[in-house]
Design a protein around this nucleic acid. Structure first.
Lengths: 225, 225
DNA sequence: CCGCGATAGATCGTATATCATTTGAGATAT
DNA sequence: ATATCTCAAATGATATACGATCTATCGCGG
């Protein structure tokens, strides 16, 4: 009835804790305590950590051990840029086969996102955002691309909690960009157009965050002077 | 002096054998014999196989074991399509920062490819092709995208050996498309233009292979009738 | 003759034990 | 005071052993 190997259990636990931020970047994943907590030996825990390593969520050093992947300044940029590319591509790929039902549901989700703009809840907004894109990706014919999108999302989960805060006003733009993507899909625009719109959608968020960081830095410097 | 863990040794051995085609798709990776051959216990071998699983080179089933990933008809398409997207993106990203030195070396490699067209050697051609793109990717600022490209190449290694043969005439076109990409890069064309050219380059190969398969199938059917 | 259940062999999954490596604290010498 | 050396504790890496699970074969009953 378990149908779940111990290494799978360990994987899920560690993964969940990284996602939730309980294991922050830099946290050392020591085998023995984790194994003890899960009431298993270290062997399955090692396997779980190896999987996480292959996914880029933890870094590893021979005879030293694993720690939750650290994020450099540029890491966020690269992840977002990559996500923009693969998410854009995935959206472009659905352009030809998107159904009216999908569009209807996506529109509904986007309206709910619009509603939340009044009493804004970043957590909820992010959830709805994932839902929005997930609905569209349902009919993506290329599972590889979808896999890359999901990897990107997972990576973002780690990054989000760290030092990258929310950008005011970006949510509203985001909803409008969703409108635009839905409109393009609805009027059966060329796939490349849809792709680039989706890509820009993600890149716009990246640029907004970078801009905000730049300004925050500038403020800090002038106040220090 | 070893500086190499056993699980790493196991990983490399298995990986090399998958790449070289010695372990064909469907081949069952049984722990004990591999461990015996490498003179180690099964534990590091398991870890190695887990890594390969995370990379998609082998599939895994609980309590049954691992086998080299099988390729369905559509798998090749999806892999090539994904590779077209990420390789295109990577090429687009270098557009702004490409150096004259890179272009010179890439041109030289492409000329060597042109030379091999006379007495054609698919193996050699593929090597040079990788070299060509590698030279360009040297300055790619986004390591994530590069990683995706390499994953794609690895995946292709597995697929190439299987059932997807060479397409006559495609090599010459390929060299010409390389010329085109180099020309765009040389005249500092917009990144998106470079990206789409590189993407098309890869997609053209995909379409050529599909077309050839379609014709082969058609021939088989009419001769059967 | 075919289908189904029992059984044995193969193989995987995990625990325990041991060896190897790293790291840091304390001692010692310069 | 600082640098380096030594050694012990912590931790990772691997081997071995055993129990669990699957798979294929064989025999039995329909």
């Amino acid at each position: 009835m378990t149908a779940l190997s111990k290494s799978e259990q360990a994987y899920r636990l560690i993964r969940e804790r990284i996602d939730s931020g309980r294991y922050v970047p830099g946290y050392r994943l020591v085998l023995a305590p984790i194994a003890a907590e899960l009431d298993m030996s270290v062997v399955p825990v090692r396997e779980a950590i190896r999987r996480l390593e292959a996914e880029g969520l933890v870094t590893f050093e021979l005879n030293v051990g694993a720690q939750v992947a650290l994020i450099e300044e540029t890491e966020y940029q690269h992840t977002m840029q990559t996500l923009a590319i693969v998410e854009g591509a995935a959206t472009g790929l659905i352009a030809d086969g998107v159904t009216e039902d999908q569009l209807t549901r996506a529109r509904a989700i986007n309206e709910r996102m619009r509603d939340t703009l009044e009493h804004f809840d970043p957590q909820r907004f992010t959830e709805l955002n994932l839902e929005f894109h997930s609905v569209l990706f349902e009919t993506c014919p290329n599972p590889h691309i979808l896999d890359l999108v999901h990897r990107g999302w997972n990576r973002m989960k780690v990054l989000r909690e760290s030092s990258f805060s929310f950008v005011p006003g970006r949510a509203r733009e985001s909803v409008e960009e969703h409108d635009r993507i839905l409109r393009l899909l609805g009027e059966r625009a060329p796939a490349i157009e849809v792709e680039l719109a989706a890509r820009e959608h993600r890149l716009a968020t990246l640029h907004a965050v970078l801009e905000q960081q730049h300004q925050a830095k500038h403020r800090a410097e002038s106040s220090a002077a």
